[in-house]
Amino acid sequence: MTLTIENLSKQFVKNGEELVEALVDISVDVRDGEFICILGPSGCGKTTLLRIIAGLDHPTSGTVRIDGTVIDRPNRKLGMIFQDYSLYPWRTVNENIAFGLEIQGVVEEERAGIVQKYLALTGLSEFGTSYPYELSGGMRQRIAVVRALAVDPKVLLMDEPFGALDAQTRNKLQYDLLDIWGKTKKTILFVTHSVDEAVFLADRILVLTPRPGRICDVIPVDHPHPRDRTSVEFAKVRRYVLDMINQPKCSLS
């Protein structure tokens, strides 16, 4: 798998006339199996960047390519997880996980097996026939993750997926995500505004400036997983990232 983002810029028209720049000249080569966190303040265009990579929005200039193909619409190689759980409330957990398989025409007997496999991955096997409203926010988001995984995409795009969760649940889901990442070898692009989360998860952190978003630094984090949030090394990386986002080149647009 190769995912390349080349000189990507996005402008949009606000109130009919004013031209607003959202993203300026973003270029990244994403490596196969890499965990990238896109870190930036609210409104910096990081969600727009993710939506363009997903094929939901179009760039003004520049391209996104997966395995050489330009992305201009949703592509099966890319899965996405939204911040507010986008599970279908009229479908049970099993039916939600099966949704993508259904869309892609996988026959029912085969679907059931895949659903069980991914449900087991969440540790929520006993909730297969429950409805989303019977689950907590953390449980719902776990189901949303495996719904995206069930169709076996190569890249997982995550838009502040744990942003609406309390700190404990959030930490737990971060561990679970690393676990799933280890087992499935997916490439992950993860948008967050939390330095702590980025340092905990990422192989590389792309730091974006406030709007219009441009990449002001790429910080590799090569400590092995699982990382200890209370360790000295973790604190060092964290301080480095915090210093970086406060420097003029990252804090001024």
Binding site: F99, G100, I103, Q104
Partner: peptide, 29 residues
């Protein structure tokens, strides 16, 4: 019908028809 519901389906490869039958109709039902 939430935009997220529709976009999740599109990401998973749903056609217009599938979005209508599997997301819009049950969501609006």
């Amino acid at each position: 019908v939430k935009r997220n519901w529709i976009e999740s389906a599109e990401i998973l490869g749903a056609t217009h028809r599938q979005v209508l039958l599997k997301v819009v109709l049950p969501g609006a039902a």
